[in-house]
Structures are given as C-alpha cells and as structure tokens.
Design a protein around this nucleic acid. Structure first.
Lengths: 310, 310
DNA sequence: CGGCGTCCTAAGGGAAGGGTTATCTCGATC
DNA sequence: GATCGAGATAACCCTTCCCTTAGGACGCCG
C-alpha cells in the first residue's frame, strides 16, 4: 500500500473513471488501472467496480476512500510543514482551463508573484471535473475558471464571450448552422464555459474543430474557416485591426464570471489565501484585462511554469 | 516519501535512537538509518539529529512527526476497515515481554481466541520502551506486561516474583553477592520487572547470565549455577518436585502487578477492547495461573503465533 | 451483430525501495 | 590519545513500484 496507490484510488473514486484519473495525473490509463489492481490485491477487496454508468464503491471501498483521502492530505501537509519551518518559498499549485492558461492566468500569477514574493507558483491545465477533484484532494491549491461545486468559489472578474469570424462573414438566414466552430482544447470539456456554449447551440461534433490554442483558432477564423468563441477583451485588438469581426448570434455575446475556487479557509494553504486576496486588488484586475501588458511566456519560467503534476 | 519511511521516522523519534527503532522493527540498524536518510533527502531537512544523549528533533521534524504518526495510524485504520467490512477475522496484535511470552500470555490468548472467536491473534516480544512506542503508534493493539506510561493501563493479575536455586544452595553471610543471576532476555530490559530487580540488587553485569528462555535459566539454577528470578506459580511444580528451592533474600519475594495497556477507548481497536474485557473473567485468570493446563505451544500456531512485525 | 468505449491483464524495462555486511566518522569517555 | 558506541555511508543484491505498449473481456448502442 503506497501513497501513490492511495492517491490513484481516491482520484478514481472522485472522478468516477479510471480514464479520467489517468488524464488528471498525466499518465496512461493502464498505469492507473494497475495501481488500483495492486491496492485491490493488497487490501483483498475490489474497492470500486464498474456499474453501468460510472463506477461504484464497495462498502469497504467507501470506508477506505475517506481514510486514503486523509492520508494524501496529510502527505501534502507534511511537505508544506517542512517548507514553512525552513523558511523556504511556499509552493502554490494553480489549475485552470486551457483557455485561461494561455494569457489571463499567467499574467495574473506573474503580477501575484511580483507582488507577494517568496511564493513559487506552478500552473496546471485541467478540465472542470478534474479541477474540482484536484482541489478537493489538495493536489492543487486553487483553481481559476468556472465555479466549482463543493469548494469555496469567489467571483473575480466579469468577462464577455463573443463569437469572432472573418470580417466579411455573412450570417445567412439559418443563423450559424453549417458554420464550423473553431475552439481551443477547453471546448472539449462540456462543463467549461466554451463547452457549455457549444452544447447550448447544439453544435454537432462534426462542425467542431479543436486547435492547440486560441491564437490558432483565431487565425483560422480570420482565414474564414468558421467562427471562434473568444474572450472579448482578449480579441479586441484583432477586431480593431480589422483582422476579425464580432459575429452576432442568438444569446451572444454572453457575460460570464471568472471564479477562484479553493477549500474552506481552515484547510486552505497559505498561498491560496494570499492569491484569493490578491485577485481583488486593482493590480490583479489590470493584469487580467491587459495580459499583454506583461511579458512573453518565456519570461515566466522561473516563477511560473505550466505542468501537469505527477 | 513512503509509509515505511514515515513509520521508521516516527519510531526513531519515539524511541530516541536509530538502534532501538531497528530492534523494534526487527531489522538491521543501517536499514533504519537509510530509510531515515531517504526521508531526510526527500524533505530536505535533517528532521532529527544526534544531540549528546539521545536525538533531538528539528523544528520541521517536530511538525512532521505528528503528521507522520497520523498517517501511519490511518494506514492501520484502512486495513482494519477493509477487514471489518468484509467480515474477515479481526487482527489483534499483542506485545509482551520475553518472560511472559513463554507461557502466561500464550495461554491467555489461547483461551481468548477459543472464547471470542473470529479473532486472529499474533504475539510479539519487545522491551518495555518498545512496547510503549508500538502501542502508541498502533503497530500493536495491546501490551501485556508492566504498566506503560502514556497509555491506559489496567491491572490484571497479581503475581509473585521469587528467587529459585539449587535446593542445597546456602546463602552465606554476605547475602547474594557473588552468586550469578540467571535470567531470560527480559532481564536485559532495565524497565522490565526482572530488570528492575537486577538494578535494585545492584547486580554487576559480570554476574548476569542471559538464557534464551526461562526454562533454560531454571535448569541452570537447578544445576547450581546461581539463582534465577521466576514467577512463583510458574515454578511451583519444580519446587514441589524438589528440583528447585526458593531462595530467601532481602526484599524477596516481591509481589507485582501484570497490566494490559492499550490506547484510550476511542482509538482502541475492537479486538483490544474484547481482550481487555476478557482478562477480567475467571477463564482468563485460570489460564494465566495454570498455563500448563493448556496445550503445547505447537498447537497455538493457527490462532496464535509469535513474531516480530516488519 | 459488429463497432466502440472502458477497464483489465500481460510483458518488459527502468527506477527506486529496502535489506544485508563492511567500513567510516565523530563525540564521549577513560 | 586510544577506545568504544552509535549513527552515517558504501557497495551490493533482490524485490517492488510504476511506467509503457499491446492485446483481451465486456457492456452498450446503432
């Protein structure tokens, strides 16, 4: 029974799927399945088993999850305790969506580390479901993105999601049907803001094109390949330049809220607390609204880097 | 950071010595030292360091001990939870002194398992200091022997410690000085009842002979090699047969109490609770006072076996 | 009934854990 | 200052972890 096995088990039970846990941990699916098998053998109980839709915990599994979760939490505490005792830099692990990780959150974190000092920040990308599980299991300290259930969420910023396309794009009578939607990976997460948009407009999968990042989706949109959802103030410069134009559509644009989500204050890490306070400052607002005011991504490397935690 | 490493660290800090922890775990001293080194490297802190007499925790070490202790405890909980959920036999881990492990405690546990049913018992041997640490760290469920500090102790039985020797042994004017003391391994534990006896009589080390078990010490005493401390009712048959005789000495015989010691009831395992109740029954008394009424040791193997836990 | 998604198992290899014995270091002690 | 005891380290071996790719079992759905 290793801590890694327990971590895997907890994550599988939270996410309800071996596959999802593997994705969240950034490893192959058999790796997770095998860790689970080892734990099952050690404890001589299936712990969790497939059951039609999703997986279901056995009675023993239910009891072990809560214990295992505590153990994983304590492991985090132990490392944090040592760091703190020795005056080392705190470690703040942030998760966010793919979209936000491209500009807004790095800019925010860059401003944060410059202001706070003595904090080392790492940034990870995850889906909404994963973000919730990661925060609850304290594999991440704080999540930036949509409101997560089960943890303390706080609205930070209001932003507008618009559709952009080639300036000459004409919407025919049938609205948007037939047009391709050009999205970044966040679009594949149905619980993300962009994913919810696709669902709401009943966009068939065949009409969704996923790009590695938003910039790529925009340039495809500028080339007339379709429409791209975009955070309005992020694309404003392109629109002003005439490279892109906002596209009208029913229920568009839509105003959304950006949240920071973390555990309740007792269980929250110190760094998470500091970031929660920081996001309410004007400095934070400015960084998020004008992410380009910052520096290129390469400059973030020492204090801020993007990774998926193993 | 593995659970084994944490267990080692906790044990070292409780026992104040790498050596003692190694003995308690039944492994070599470098094994413990190395596990500690790995943890130190992982956490980048010495955690605990030599300091004249004994070892001292660093600030970080102090914080980690309590967290690590909780983790080790939870690991025990997890295994117990699974066993219980699946209706498997409970596991009761008993520690006792070398002396008591030879007859009294096996007889007690044999009676206990026969009466209680559905409980699997294992018996380990340890020194007094180790027993306290093992119970506190829940590496054992219950200890039988001298009163342990820091845990709930309950007197079970009064027994008399006498000195026996060859029937023709004559005590010269100078009392016992010059006689050899023939003891079992418990005699090397200064906090055990026998060890305390040796200390009280200021027996120099050169006059102490350690035998593998009490029977061996008795037969040496019967051969006239010296005097042996013995539990009175255990040696009564030999005295009646004339093979041994009680030897008078200042402050001897001495009446002592046998205790069962375990954690407070909230943290106590179910089996420990049952054993605590059982020891108050007449059946238990009879088993302890007439251990030979039971069966040969080999018959204990399925329900009761002696081991040091790894 | 044939895909398809999901989980499990098999096989192989690299890394780390964890054990041993032998040796080194260092402080306490006589 | 030589000795001794206790902890740390070295060298070595074996086992377990844990990752990968490849393929099998099984339920679900068109």
């Amino acid at each position: 029974m290793t801590l890694a096995q327990l971590k895997v088990f907890v994550l599988v039970s939270r996410l309800g799927s071996v596959r999802a846990a593997a994705a969240a941990l950034g490893v192959s699916e058999p790796a997770v399945s095998q860790a689970l098998a080892a734990l099952r053998q050690h404890l001589d109980d299936p712990l969790i088993a497939r059951s039609g839709a999703g997986m279901e915990l056995t009675p023993a599994g239910r009891r072990v999850v809560s214990i295992a979760s505590q153990m994983v939490n304590l492991a985090v505490d132990a490392e944090a305790a040592v760091r703190q005792s020795n005056g080392a830099a705190e470690l703040l692990r942030v998760v966010t969506t793919s979209t936000l990780a491209q500009a807004i959150v790095p800019a925010l974190l860059q401003a944060f580390t410059a202001r706070a000092g003595g904090i080392e920040v790492s940034l990870g990308v995850a889906t909404t479901d994963e973000m919730a599980a990661l925060v609850e299991e304290r594999l991440a300290d704080i999540a930036v993105g949509p409101r997560l259930p089960g943890v303390e969420a706080e609205a930070v910023m209001r932003y507008r999601l618009t559709l952009v396309g080639h300036p000459a794009l004409r919407i025919n009578g049938g609205g948007l049907s037939g047009l391709r939607w050009l999205v970044d990976p966040t679009g594949t997460d149905p619980k993300s803001d962009v994913g919810a948009l696709l669902t709401k407009h009943r966009v068939p999968e065949s009409q969704i094109m996923v790009f590695a990042n938003e910039k790529a989706a925009w340039s495809a949109a500028a080339a007339g390949d379709g429409v791209a959802p975009a955070i309005d103030h992020m694309v404003a410069a392109e629109v002003d330049r005439g490279a892109l134009a906002r596209v009208g559509a029913p229920d568009m644009p839509v105003d959304l809220l950006l949240y920071v989500c973390s555990l309740e204050s007792q269980r929250r890490s110190n760094g998470a607390d500091k970031l929660r306070r920081f996001v309410r400052t004007p400095d934070a607002m400015q960084a998020m609204y004008r992410p380009d005011s910052g520096v290129p991504v390469s400059k973030f490397r020492p204090p801020v880097y993007v990774t998926l935690w193993s």
